[in-house]
Amino acid sequence: MATKKFMYLNRKASYGTAYAIESLEVVLIAAAFDQDVSLAFIDDGVYQIVEGQNTDGIGMKNFSKTFHALGDYDINKLYVSAESLVERGLTADDLMSLVYEDEDDDWAEKPSVKIVSNAELTKIMSDQDVCLSF
């Protein structure tokens, strides 16, 4: 099977609607198909990977923890819109530290999250075979 480039576009915060958790579930299921997968977080989607989420008070699953598993699923390209962070008063330090182990570099731990400008994101998007929006 030829490998295609899949990008999952996440634009909504985690708990107000089901978009975010649905996206993550689709990503995990699709990971079984050995495709080239990347995730983009823009607009309120950046809140999905903010550090320190605690859902005890709303009775919902804190699936932000699941993002830490993505490295095991060979999903290690998480692009975050720099402009979307700035608009929301967030910086790189507010995001979870998500890492993967690089098979080709003696399993060295490397960051999965990359903050990019909208212009860079435009280029990455136009390089995809499939973009799925959530």
Binding site: R11, I42, D43, S81, E83, T122, K123, M125
Partner: peptide, 8 residues
């Protein structure tokens, strides 16, 4: 607006 932010 989001579309316009990233359109080439």
């Amino acid at each position: 607006q989001s579309c316009l932010n990233t359109i080439d």
